[in-house]
Design a protein around this nucleic acid. Sequence first.
DNA 1: CTGAAAGCGCTTACAG
DNA 2: CTGAAAGCGCTTACAG
Lengths: 332, 332
Amino acid sequence: MGVTIKDVAKLANVSPSTVSRVISNSPRISEATKNAVYAAMDTLKYKPNAIARNLANASTKTLGLIIPNREENLLKNPFFIQAMRGISLYSQKKNYKIMFSYGASPADELNFVREFVNSKWVDGIILLTAYENDQCIAYLNQQSFPFVVIGRPFDIHDILWVDNDNFQATYNLVNHLIQKGMHEMAFVGGPKRFIFSKDRLEGFRRAMALRNLSIDERMVIEMPDFSEEYGYQAMAAICDEHVPQAVVTTDDLLAFGVMKYVREHGLSVRVTGFNNSPLSEYQTPPLTSIDIQAEKLGYHAAKLLIESLEGIENPMNHYIVDTTLIERGSTR
Amino acid sequence: MGVTIKDVAKLANVSPSTVSRVISNSPRISEATKNAVYAAMDTLKYKPNAIARNLANASTKTLGLIIPNREENLLKNPFFIQAMRGISLYSQKKNYKIMFSYGASPADELNFVREFVNSKWVDGIILLTAYENDQCIAYLNQQSFPFVVIGRPFDIHDILWVDNDNFQATYNLVNHLIQKGMHEMAFVGGPKRFIFSKDRLEGFRRAMALRNLSIDERMVIEMPDFSEEYGYQAMAAICDEHVPQAVVTTDDLLAFGVMKYVREHGLSVRVTGFNNSPLSEYQTPPLTSIDIQAEKLGYHAAKLLIESLEGIENPMNHYIVDTTLIERGSTR
DNA sequence: CTGAAAGCGCTTACAG
DNA sequence: CTGAAAGCGCTTACAG
């Protein structure tokens, strides 16, 4: 049905090998035959069969993407879609394709990774999250399969990753709040299984410590997931203890819950979020948040991985993307 | 490097053909040899090479997904990510993979479609949007390449599609508003290049007409894109004329702009949106919106396409997904 | 029920 | 600079 390299060869009066070389732009082909082949390809409307090339090359120029499927967060947090766009932008530029799977659970994610690797479907894999004791990372390492992680993994030995400096971002934010006169601060964090959770908490602690501000440990709360509900609960627990001047959260959804509590109880507490989700500017008052530039994270993840696949030397096995503090509604 | 069907054959003392038949679960293989082959596969940890299968089968069990890349909307409107999840859920169930490309423009989208088709990378294509005079649809039709469209296309002759009943959804909404005592209503719609824009406007017109309510044509506004800014502008134009009792919009972002105008001018106007984006419940007051169940749209799109690829007879070449009116903040 | 052989559409040492 | 041949790892009529 389709026209193949043979048809082109026949029409151009050359061998299939030559056509193949023209396609891959081999240098040692005369202009004359090149043009003859191009002409033949044109008249026959020849399109290379990617699958056959994949097999012969033992490479698919395709990356596999594992998207963790956490209901709520996926929709309200633009992180994933932004990261995907960044990944896609760089990949398309380099003529790589993207294949994705949604993992319903970490176990599921591991299965998809396995399948990607075993079936030879992809040349490399991009993980959108790094867990503590990450099974996917362990597996990929063990198989020495090329991959990159968005989010600094626990053991960074010899693996590719991109991330923000979560420690620094929180550290700077807290300093900024201190400058504004806050000194009694609470902290509402996310699940410990994410490394960025630890980093953000550490940034909070360090900034407080350096200014000699004491932290009431009962006002440092780590919730098992990112949701408004948990934010609300955390704030209730905190205020049970004492109403702080400010609450630093590690996710906008948590912040929304905290703010809800604040509004409902007519308190005056400064709240900050993380991720700068589109929702944050619609809060009352609009929420101050940290923009992590997810698209850049994705872009550089793809870049790191593809460069490594193409054998481009890279002195760095990681890339740090800047964060920006987006201040809003600071009318106090 | 990898272990192939030949290695398994040797170990199991059968021919490669037999191993292949075991893999594809051919019925005419004795239990004995089946087990021998399975055992061999186990000890060798054999995994079929998907690429080689693809070539031999002339099928990849992969679907191509074209994601229109409209900045703003992609992030604030959960439609795409929800639809993708639905598509992914069904595909994974049927062991199909998904490959995606972001199109920066309709021209770009057409290029990706072309590439998907020509390179033989995918067995079928899912389009996430239908334009008027859609180039992608025209091309796919002309190539008789299998595809499905989310959003009823202009010419539905013989093509697969899923959609909501946009006419009905708006019709019912307007009726509902009429019941609540509204009779002076304005309409703020989106770009005419989308078919659903027309359907929604038509629903509005029909409902008004059936109740014998007149429409002031100066209060029916169609904007060139979905954004708050445009919503705001539209409402300014409308109120220049006359302040209506209610404004029906065809997208939450438009509604946000309308509401902003309403708030800023201290008006009392009822506003409704479309898509039930996560943002809508955070508006002041919370926005009434129509939930289009994007995940279901995606799920059924994948279902329709895969069933057709697998030759499963389907009496319907389309599927209509219900909408739900989500009423919020109707404290008036 | 099973095997030998040809084929899917490319690529690439090897030889000239 | 170009061609003949073998190979990538499967599948599948054909024959038995």
